[in-house]
Protein backbone atom coordinates (compact mmCIF):
# COMPACT_ATOMS: atom_id res chain seq x y z
CA UNK A 1 0.00 0.00 0.00
CA UNK A 2 1.25 3.45 -0.86
CA UNK A 3 2.32 5.51 2.13
CA UNK A 4 -0.03 8.43 2.79
CA UNK A 5 1.84 11.60 2.02
CA UNK A 6 1.73 14.14 4.84
CA UNK A 7 2.65 17.77 4.47
CA UNK A 8 2.27 20.43 7.11
CA UNK A 9 0.55 23.75 6.35
CA UNK A 10 3.74 25.82 6.32
CA UNK A 11 6.04 23.12 4.92
CA UNK A 12 6.75 25.21 1.82
CA UNK A 13 8.42 27.83 4.03
CA UNK A 14 11.97 27.52 5.38
CA UNK A 15 12.41 28.21 9.06
CA UNK A 16 13.96 31.58 9.86
CA UNK A 17 16.80 31.49 12.37
CA UNK A 18 18.78 34.31 13.90
CA UNK A 19 18.03 36.91 16.52
CA UNK A 20 14.35 36.59 15.72
CA UNK A 21 13.24 33.13 14.67
CA UNK A 22 10.14 31.69 13.07
CA UNK A 23 9.30 28.02 12.79
CA UNK A 24 6.31 25.71 12.55
CA UNK A 25 5.33 23.29 15.31
CA UNK A 26 3.36 20.88 13.14
CA UNK A 27 1.52 17.70 14.12
CA UNK A 28 0.30 18.81 17.50
CA UNK A 29 -2.93 17.05 18.43
CA UNK A 30 -5.85 19.43 19.03
CA UNK A 31 -9.27 18.67 20.46
CA UNK A 32 -12.17 21.12 20.55
CA UNK A 33 -14.37 20.49 23.59
CA UNK A 34 -17.71 22.16 24.30
CA UNK A 35 -20.07 21.77 27.21
CA UNK A 36 -21.60 23.59 30.15
CA UNK A 37 -19.02 24.09 32.95
CA UNK A 38 -21.84 24.89 35.39
CA UNK A 39 -22.78 21.24 35.05
CA UNK A 40 -20.37 19.71 37.59
CA UNK A 41 -20.80 16.28 35.98
CA UNK A 42 -19.52 17.65 32.69
CA UNK A 43 -16.58 19.40 34.33
CA UNK A 44 -15.54 16.46 36.51
CA UNK A 45 -15.94 13.75 33.89
CA UNK A 46 -14.27 15.63 31.04
CA UNK A 47 -11.30 16.62 33.22
CA UNK A 48 -10.89 13.05 34.47
CA UNK A 49 -11.26 11.36 31.08
CA UNK A 50 -9.12 13.85 29.16
CA UNK A 51 -6.56 14.20 32.01
CA UNK A 52 -6.73 18.01 31.86
CA UNK A 53 -7.76 20.98 33.97
CA UNK A 54 -10.30 23.19 32.18
CA UNK A 55 -9.53 26.89 32.61
CA UNK A 56 -12.72 28.79 33.52
CA UNK A 57 -11.29 32.29 33.16
CA UNK A 58 -11.04 34.07 29.78
CA UNK A 59 -7.55 34.51 28.29
CA UNK A 60 -6.03 31.69 30.33
CA UNK A 61 -4.71 28.21 29.69
CA UNK A 62 -3.59 25.41 31.99
CA UNK A 63 -0.67 23.02 31.45
CA UNK A 64 -1.32 19.67 33.09
CA UNK A 65 1.04 16.72 32.49
CA UNK A 66 1.62 16.66 28.72
CA UNK A 67 -1.60 18.47 27.78
CA UNK A 68 -2.43 22.17 27.58
CA UNK A 69 -6.00 23.41 27.68
CA UNK A 70 -6.91 26.84 26.31
CA UNK A 71 -10.04 28.82 27.20
CA UNK A 72 -11.86 29.65 23.95
CA UNK A 73 -15.24 30.70 25.29
CA UNK A 74 -17.49 30.28 28.32
CA UNK A 75 -18.37 26.77 27.09
CA UNK A 76 -15.50 25.98 24.74
CA UNK A 77 -11.87 24.82 25.09
CA UNK A 78 -8.99 23.69 22.88
CA UNK A 79 -6.81 20.88 24.21
CA UNK A 80 -3.30 20.31 22.87
CA UNK A 81 -1.90 16.81 23.25
CA UNK A 82 0.47 14.46 21.40
CA UNK A 83 -1.17 13.69 18.06
CA UNK A 84 -1.13 9.93 18.61
CA UNK A 85 -3.36 10.33 21.67
CA UNK A 86 -6.20 12.27 20.04
CA UNK A 87 -8.34 9.33 18.93
CA UNK A 88 -8.25 7.54 22.28
CA UNK A 89 -8.76 10.74 24.24
CA UNK A 90 -11.88 11.60 22.26
CA UNK A 91 -13.42 8.13 22.46
CA UNK A 92 -12.68 7.78 26.19
CA UNK A 93 -14.08 11.23 26.97
CA UNK A 94 -17.11 10.56 24.78
CA UNK A 95 -17.83 7.38 26.72
CA UNK A 96 -17.28 9.04 30.09
CA UNK A 97 -19.58 11.96 29.24
CA UNK A 98 -22.25 9.66 27.81
CA UNK A 99 -25.55 11.49 27.70
CA UNK A 100 -24.20 14.71 29.22
CA UNK A 101 -24.64 17.38 26.54
CA UNK A 102 -21.19 17.94 24.99
CA UNK A 103 -19.17 18.13 21.78
CA UNK A 104 -15.71 16.66 21.11
CA UNK A 105 -14.05 17.31 17.75
CA UNK A 106 -10.59 16.41 16.45
CA UNK A 107 -9.32 19.70 14.99
CA UNK A 108 -5.65 18.66 14.74
CA UNK A 109 -5.59 19.22 10.97
CA UNK A 110 -7.75 22.35 11.08
CA UNK A 111 -4.96 24.42 12.66
CA UNK A 112 -1.21 24.57 12.85
CA UNK A 113 1.03 26.36 15.34
CA UNK A 114 3.77 28.82 14.39
CA UNK A 115 6.53 29.63 16.87
CA UNK A 116 7.90 33.18 16.94
CA UNK A 117 10.84 34.01 19.20
CA UNK A 118 13.22 36.87 19.69
CA UNK A 119 13.68 40.35 21.11
CA UNK A 120 11.42 41.85 18.42
CA UNK A 121 8.63 39.25 18.65
CA UNK A 122 6.18 41.74 20.17
CA UNK A 123 6.98 44.42 17.61
CA UNK A 124 6.52 41.92 14.77
CA UNK A 125 3.14 40.82 16.08
CA UNK A 126 2.09 44.40 16.73
CA UNK A 127 2.34 45.09 13.01
CA UNK A 128 -1.02 43.37 12.51
CA UNK A 129 -2.36 42.42 15.95
CA UNK A 130 -4.38 44.96 17.97
CA UNK A 131 -3.67 43.45 21.42
CA UNK A 132 -1.50 45.20 23.98
CA UNK A 133 1.42 42.76 23.98
CA UNK A 134 3.47 44.47 26.67
CA UNK A 135 4.47 41.85 29.29
CA UNK A 136 2.65 43.82 31.99
CA UNK A 137 -0.62 43.17 30.12
CA UNK A 138 0.21 39.99 28.27
CA UNK A 139 2.56 38.07 30.55
CA UNK A 140 4.02 34.60 30.17
CA UNK A 141 1.29 31.97 30.21
CA UNK A 142 -1.40 34.38 28.94
CA UNK A 143 -3.32 33.40 25.83
CA UNK A 144 -5.89 35.23 23.77
CA UNK A 145 -7.87 34.76 20.63
CA UNK A 146 -7.33 37.77 18.45
CA UNK A 147 -6.39 38.55 14.88
CA UNK A 148 -3.18 38.99 12.92
CA UNK A 149 -4.03 40.88 9.77
CA UNK A 150 -7.06 39.09 8.37
CA UNK A 151 -6.36 35.81 10.17
CA UNK A 152 -7.97 34.80 13.44
CA UNK A 153 -5.29 33.46 15.76
CA UNK A 154 -4.91 31.96 19.21
CA UNK A 155 -1.88 33.68 20.68
CA UNK A 156 0.01 32.22 23.64
CA UNK A 157 3.10 33.73 25.24
CA UNK A 158 5.26 30.88 26.39
CA UNK A 159 8.90 30.35 27.31
CA UNK A 160 11.46 32.48 29.09
CA UNK A 161 12.63 34.35 26.01
CA UNK A 162 10.16 36.60 24.27
CA UNK A 163 8.33 33.83 22.48
CA UNK A 164 4.82 33.22 21.19
CA UNK A 165 2.91 30.24 19.89
CA UNK A 166 0.47 31.33 17.20
CA UNK A 167 -2.29 28.87 16.42
CA UNK A 168 -3.79 29.62 13.04
CA UNK A 169 -6.15 27.92 10.59
CA UNK A 170 -4.33 25.69 8.08
CA UNK A 171 -5.12 27.84 5.05
CA UNK A 172 -3.99 31.05 6.78
CA UNK A 173 -0.62 29.63 7.93
CA UNK A 174 1.39 30.84 4.94
CA UNK A 175 -0.29 34.25 5.08
CA UNK A 176 0.70 34.76 8.72
CA UNK A 177 4.16 33.31 8.06
CA UNK A 178 4.84 35.64 5.11
CA UNK A 179 3.48 38.66 6.99
CA UNK A 180 5.85 37.99 9.92
CA UNK A 181 8.79 37.16 7.63
CA UNK A 182 8.36 40.36 5.63
CA UNK A 183 8.08 42.27 8.88
CA UNK A 184 11.48 40.95 9.91
CA UNK A 185 13.02 42.58 6.84
CA UNK A 186 11.83 46.06 7.79
CA UNK A 187 12.30 46.08 11.55
Amino acid sequence: MKEIETTSPACARTGIAGENSLSELPWCGKINLRGNPQNTGFLRKSEKALVVKLPLHPNTCIDYLDRTTYWLGPDEWCIHCPIGEVGNAISQAGQALGRIHHSLVDVSDYYTVLRLEGPDAEALLAKACPLDLHPRKFCEGTCAQTRFGHASILLHRTGRVSGFNIQVRWSFAEYVWDYLASGMQVL
Binding site: P130, A144, T146, R147
Partner: peptide, 10 residues
Protein backbone atom coordinates in the same frame (compact mmCIF):
# COMPACT_ATOMS: atom_id res chain seq x y z
CA UNK B 1 -18.42 40.63 28.43
CA UNK B 2 -16.05 37.64 28.53
CA UNK B 3 -12.63 38.62 27.09
CA UNK B 4 -12.48 42.20 28.37
CA UNK B 5 -11.29 45.28 26.48
CA UNK B 6 -10.46 44.61 22.84
CA UNK B 7 -9.99 46.55 19.65
CA UNK B 8 -13.07 47.23 17.51
CA UNK B 9 -11.47 45.35 14.59
CA UNK B 10 -12.00 42.06 16.46
Amino acid sequence: PWCGQRDQSE
